[in-house]
Design a protein around this nucleic acid. Structure first.
Lengths: 185, 185
DNA sequence: GCCTGTCAACCGATCGGTCGGTAGGATGGT
DNA sequence: ACCATCCTACCGACCGATCGGTTGACAGGC
């Protein structure tokens, strides 16, 4: 049941943002009474933190599968972009993009956990950039971590940009163009 | 007074997201009574649309000043990034990043206006990429519009990423690293 | 006399959250 | 086998606060 609530909450948060999701909404979605939701999550912050943690542990293996594969660095970058694109197609952008704008309505602890999740993702991305530099398939300036931050941010930004502009195809166009730009033949 | 309300609203929306800003908050901030706010904006959607429009007309000249200058393309890209960085330093990210996550709580008209604003910005950015290709200072694959979309999305994403991760310096590091990567010596 | 801006008072709805209590399944002592 | 106990999950009813929004009245300047 707890998982079912989190599923519904995740979908709604990705759709409308955290504080446009009420316990009543949740209760309706999972066919429980509102009071019962509080049995599983004592308050909204606990719900948010559970959401963040679950999001992290759900996507970490997805990233790992791409990063730890034996593909070339450019292929891995495309794979990472694909993860985000897949979520976007199902109207389910990354939680970071969904929670990011309301970051000052979250508790400090929650923000910190969100930040850790983001930093973890970026550091995984950085491994790919390092690999690309080592094997000579990627050409970029500065530290791998900075390139990874930029790439990760681009994927995040594309998610909100695409939803705002309505042009779904822009995601893969822009992401692929970027990867091409820094790939070496 | 209308402007004063919009100023306060803008700051609060950038800080916490639209639907965490109440008319009461606004009234307190501008030292009016709640009912008086409704004299200037009949409802919340009107407020949001006014915010979007003002944001567009405020930033358009800022973009134009950079795009229409006679600097080189890489310098212009740095200038554009600087606009966003300046906003970020004042805890005032772009409205697109602030409204983007709750896009499904806005009316269709508002979303459309937001989309137009975004497309307008991207198309201005694209001029710079075109210039860079023409003058041989920028090296990237695909159409200028795709590169511009990616760059703009990166700036948007960096804003939320920086606020979530707490590492303010990451913005310019990542943005500059990107520009360096696609610049030709 | 009218228009603009302001306000107090109020509205129904909904918000996050609490409370007391119930149904049912395990547990364990006798 | 029996019953008392405990625990998890759930629920109806309710709380104070706040939400977006409305109404009618009162100033002051044109």
């Amino acid at each position: 049941m707890k998982e079912k609530i989190l599923d519904a909450a995740e979908k709604m948060v990705q759709d409308r943002g955290l504080n446009a999701v009420s316990f009543q909404d949740l209760a309706n979605a999972v066919e429980l009474r509102k009071a019962s939701i509080f049995h599983h999550f004592p308050n909204k912050e606990a719900l948010a933190r559970a959401l963040i943690e679950r999001c992290g542990s759900k996507h970490r293996p997805e990233y790992a599968a791409v990063v730890d594969s034996n593909a070339s660095a450019p292929e891995k970058l495309r794979g990472l972009a694909g993860i985000f694109e897949k979520g976007l197609r199902n109207q389910r952008p990354c939680l970071l993009a969904a929670l990011g704008s309301g970051v000052n309505t979250l508790s400090e602890v929650a923000v910190q956990e969100l930040g850790e999740m983001a930093r973890g993702a970026v550091s995984r991305f950085a491994l790919v950039f390092q690999q690309g530099r080592d094997e000579g398939t990627l050409q970029f300036s500065g530290e791998p971590i900075d390139a990874a931050t930029g790439f990760f941010a681009m994927l995040q930004g594309l998610q909100v940009l695409v939803r705002a502009s309505g042009d779904t195809s822009a995601f893969s166009s822009a992401a692929n163009a970027y990867v091409d730009s820094i790939s070496l033949a």
